[in-house]
């Protein structure tokens, strides 16, 4: 499902001393089936932006289209939008509440008014997608490990079978193994369910590995957007706002500065290895 955002501006509590322009004139599109990385510091407006996409926050100005619905303005069509655009918040395990994992994952689908049978099917599918064994279904969500809690929370959003999946820093606070597992699950979900995915992340290494397209926010504005190559080309600009390109890309840039004829657009270790070994002929 396509998403398009045009001239989006959001002003926080306008007309009060706390007034603040949180987002300013944002434009971008996410096409059906794309895997987009959204990057920026805390306070750059990332979280506010993604909450616009499922109708939780209304823009002060601008138009947002999700599929063929216009979700902003006077005749905004936002009914059931949160089921189409699934949003996994930061530290989503902090929103778990039900007695069992099953019931927690079933919360979204039952809010959709689905039949018991359909809900059951969706809970099972969602648990499988995030790699949770179904034996855990009757356990309390508070009794499992941190990584598993995170999976339960993600499954709770997947069970609504959204067309677009947005994840706000899904790996925050996990150890390297936990990060890797979650990101791999997300990639599988993206492929199997043919969803569009927006991944909010701080890690350039992660987005370089998984995303097709990037959007860099800084102080409420789009600073860079486009393919990995287009964005990582601006290493200096990223550096200036305290972000960086992946270490391998930085190494490649430096090799090119030294006059070595290596292709510029290398973002992963495996690409770098083959490019460098190629140079030796």
């Amino acid at each position: 499902m396509n998403i398009s955002v045009e001239n989006l501006t959001y002003i926080y509590v306008p007309g009060t001393p706390f007034e603040k322009v949180a987002l300013e004139n944002i434009n971008f599109t996410v096409k059906s089936g794309e895997f987009v990385g959204l990057i920026g510091h805390s306070g750059s407006g990332k979280s506010t932006l993604v909450q616009h996409l499922n109708g939780l926050v209304k823009p002060t100005e601008g138009t947002i289209r999700v599929g063929d619905r216009i979700i902003t303005g006077k005749n905004a069509d936002t009914k059931g939008l949160c089921f189409t655009v699934g949003l996994v918040f930061q530290y989503p395990e902090q929103q778990l509440f039900a007695e069992t994992i099953y019931q927690d994952i079933a919360f979204g689908p039952s809010n959709m008014g689905l039949s018991e049978k359909e809900i059951d099917l969706r809970v099972r599918t969602a648990m499988e997608l995030v790699g949770l064994p179904f034996e855990l279904a009757e356990k309390s969500p508070f009794s499992v490990s941190g990584g598993q809690k995170r999976r339960v929370a993600i499954a709770g959003v997947l069970a609504m079978e959204p067309k677009v999946l947005i994840l706000d820093e899904p790996t925050a606070g996990l150890d390297p193994k936990g990060r890797e597992e979650i990101l791999r699950s997300i990639r599988n979900i993206h492929k199997q369910m043919n969803m569009s995915v927006i991944l909010v992340s701080h890690s350039m290494e992660d987005v370089a590995k998984y995303c097709d397209k990037l959007l860099v926010l800084n102080e409420g504005k789009v600073m860079l957007s486009g393919s990995l190559a287009e964005v990582f080309h601006h290493a200096e600009k990223l550096h200036k706002i305290g972000l960086s390109v992946p270490q391998v890309t930085l190494a490649v840039h430096k090799l090119r500065e030294k006059g070595i004829a290596i292709p510029e657009n290398i973002f992963t270790v495996s690409d770098a290895v083959s490019a460098i070994m190629n140079l030796r002929g």
């Binding site: 909450q51 499922n54 939780l56 059931g80 949160c82 089921f83 699934g86 949003l87 918040f89 989503p92 929103q95 509440f97 039900a98 919360f107 979204g108 809010n111 959709m112 709770g156 959003v157 609504m160």
Partner: peptide
């Protein structure tokens, strides 16, 4: 916000339904 994103209806229905909606 997170529960609304899962379709929780926080301000609909009668008093009992609203009270129930507070659990999450």
């Amino acid at each position: 916000a997170a529960q609304k994103a899962r379709g929780a209806a926080l301000s609909e229905g009668n008093l009992i339904r609203r009270a129930k909606a507070l659990v999450p």
